[in-house]
């Protein structure tokens, strides 16, 4: 009798295990996502391609891997910056970060967004620089200031701030953070 009980327990255990295994097999099958996908667009920091890449090379910038963008675009960026802004016209002209056109162009050409995993994440908050990008960060004014503001950030004030400082809808404090559509 005892033997039969133990035997049935063994069967029960085996059956349960089999059930577990069945459950795993029953996870929904994924759709077929096969195929080769090729880069169409890419972006790290805001507005880089838009502002600093010359018209004939915008598609090329989108399809050059970041590790090769510096070699391919840094020189173009430096020329563009010194042409665009009188405050970066010569090697002695520097921006708020202390970078001249050549150095700033070199930094921006590798178009990746650096994000801190330890501290505050922000594009610029008055203290931290380029440690991420929040929805609320006024990235355009930051970039205008770095291009037109000169050493102290105020050389051409009328071009260093577009005077739109915030979004037209409040962001959420919880996931998914972006506001509902209009």
């Amino acid at each position: 009798m005892k033997y039969i009980k133990i035997l049935s327990l063994v069967f029960l255990a085996a059956f349960t295990l089999q059930n577990c295994s069945d459950d795993e097999d029953n996870t929904p099958t994924l759709p077929d996502f096969s195929g080769t996908f090729t880069t169409a667009d890419q972006m790290g920091r805001p507005a880089i391609n838009t502002v600093l890449v010359t018209d004939g090379r915008k598609d090329a910038f989108n399809t050059t891997v970041p590790s090769q963008q510096g070699a391919a675009f840094a020189s173009d960026f430096a020329t563009r910056l010194s042409t665009l802004s009188p405050t970066l016209a010569t090697d002695d002209d520097r921006n708020l970060l202390g970078l001249n056109a050549t150095e700033f162009g070199g930094v921006l050409a590798t178009d990746v967004l650096t994000v801190s995993l330890d501290g505050t994440t922000t594009f610029f908050d008055g203290t931290n620089v380029l440690t991420g990008r929040n929805l609320s960060d006024d990235v355009i004014t930051t970039e205008l200031t770095l291009i037109f503001g000169g050493e102290d950030g105020s050389e051409i004030p009328t071009l260093s701030d577009d005077n739109v400082d915030a979004n037209d809808k409040a962001f959420l404090t919880v996931f998914p953070y972006l506001a509902e559509p209009f």
Partner: peptide, 8 residues
């Protein structure tokens, strides 16, 4: 720090 970018 990490460096990030997005592609389509």
């Amino acid at each position: 720090n990490i460096n990030t970018w997005v592609e389509t």
